[in-house]
Amino acid sequence: MTGLLRERVALVVGGASGLGEAIAHRFAAEGATVAVADANGPGAQTVADAIVAHGHNAVAVEADVTVTADVERMVAVAAGLGPLRVLVLSAAVESSVPLVDLSDDEWQHVLDVDLTGPFRVMRAGIPHLIAHGGGSVIALGSTLGLTVAPGYPAYCAAKGALVNLCKQAAIDYAPQGVRVNVLAPSATDTGLFMEHSARAPDPEAVRAMVARANPMRRLGTADEVGDAAVFLASDMSTYVSGTVIALDGGLAARRL
């Protein structure tokens, strides 16, 4: 480790599991103080404890991105740890109900977590980034926000809208030093895809099929998402903003 993220605080929303957890570990190893926020409070605590056990700095915050007051509190906790310079928007739910069967409640819930959640976190967090001379916002999108897949209407719509929201934030706050980018992973070996595929009759067969269909013939790893997030959070990417980085082994290249 070389301390690429020394002397800055990173708020990782959705940090209790999956890709958010991997990013929190990577950031802490690079010297950031990490606020691990999640609706799953005990899960966030476990991740923060593991980071501290490695000799790095982290605190847990139990907070729900669908509740504005919770979001404001998590941002306040993070800002209390030092200069808040990085926001990671990783909390998400996946939904695979066909459009004509999709209830108002499920539609609303998916948009509330996957789109309005990132909006709330940016609204509360960006002023802190500006106050410290700028910073980096990293939203976890999905290849399903760039192209679509059969049967994911709410999820694809939310992730697609997230891309334009991030571009908007990127151009509006760029003059104040805030960069906003989207990391768009395809199926990775941790997180939502593993949970989703676990519900299939033969999870391993589903995972093998998805891996085979990828140009790299494998799933992505959480560490690979963490490494790309370090790039975007660090000064390696100071002229990179408003972009969507597909982290998908080449999958989207077939369709875009």
Partner: peptide, 11 residues
């Protein structure tokens, strides 16, 4: 660091 990034365009 970009081990799973391929076919991508980075502005």
């Amino acid at each position: 660091l970009s081990g799973y990034i391929s076919g991508a365009i980075l502005p």
